[in-house]
Amino acid sequence: MEKENEIVKKLKNFLKENLVRTTVPKERRIFVYIKKDALKDAVKYLVKDLEFKHLSTITGVDLGGEIEVIYHMAYKGSIVLSIRLTVSEKNPSVPTITDLIPGAVLYEREVHDLFGVNFEGHPDLSPLVLPEGWPQGVYPLRKEHKLEHLREMTSKK
């Protein structure tokens, strides 16, 4: 776990008070909780200086009132560092990281579709996975939408 702890230490030094907390549950897994405003700096630092060049995916989680956005990044394919932040459910907005990692383009669109998180500066946030004619403002993976509700909505034509 030496490498993992070293990465955590470097991140702490770089992000200072913008870093909320970190956990290293096991080998090759790191979770880092950061403040929203520090996202761009943190990702830039991870990509440029720590060689976390690969973005595995972006996960959205509905925490009830808040949406958590988790960026799973990989270090030379081996250590997975999940950098995470929360945004309010009413106005969920995060800066895009597509300028730093072009491969994030579809992952951000997916989270936008399913959780309604607005990625500021993203080149094209048109629906990626939801069908044409899907009602605006309905984000199916939010907990408020029960299965029956979604089924009713989609069967109405």
């Binding site: 996975v129 939801l130 199916p140």
Partner: peptide, 11 residues
């Protein structure tokens, strides 16, 4: 790839 949202278009 397309596993994410719940869409039950044609029953």
């Amino acid at each position: 790839m397309d596993r994410m949202a719940f869409v039950d278009v044609k029953k």
